[in-house]
Design a protein around this nucleic acid. Sequence first.
DNA 1: TGGGTGATTCAAATTCGTTTGAATCAGTTG
DNA 2: CAACTGATTCAAACGAATTTGAATCACCCA
Lengths: 88, 88
Amino acid sequence: MAAVADPIRLEVIDRLQREGTRCVCDLQPAPPIPGNQFSYHLKVLRDCGLVTAARRGRWVDYTLAEDALDRLHAALPQRIGARQGARV
Amino acid sequence: MAAVADPIRLEVIDRLQREGTRCVCDLQPAPPIPGNQFSYHLKVLRDCGLVTAARRGRWVDYTLAEDALDRLHAALPQRIGARQGARV
DNA sequence: TGGGTGATTCAAATTCGTTTGAATCAGTTG
DNA sequence: CAACTGATTCAAACGAATTTGAATCACCCA
């Protein structure tokens, strides 16, 4: 849960889910933060397996891990009465 | 999200949901931590409205806020394909 | 009333995550 | 190759959250 306690990182997760794979420069929050600082946050997400990175030429594309949102929701106590959606 | 980034506090939320209203001493994690430290964590949860406290004689009972789990799950990006449970 | 327990508060110390600045890597282009 | 851009790494500085120890509060009971 600590990985998404930071708003910058939570926003990255959210953007990746809505927009799919994106390169680092596209994921910059508004207003932008220093590149090395952003890199640090991406590394935190990488290190806990919530996102994966792949180099594409000069750029690096980030992708939300398949099970990222499942893992996050599962880490929270479940609401009683909440029904699970069908797996894709 | 930062409120549940700490494992001690996440466990309190979980216990309160499973076991319902409990006094502070019942909520102590295993192994127990110093009372004042635990008090601090409970205050963090109180301050963001995830739990409420009520004195009962010498003891203080903690209760999970009605909307606590909804708020936590809502703070995360939603899984695609996940259906919402009916509200109680 | 005095002693004891459950719990909270406070300030100081400590720890941990984040930020910063400089350096480096990888790949592209002139 | 040299220069440039996108991105990452590293160590040091910083700041916020947590831990600690002591004091305090609230209540109950002998």
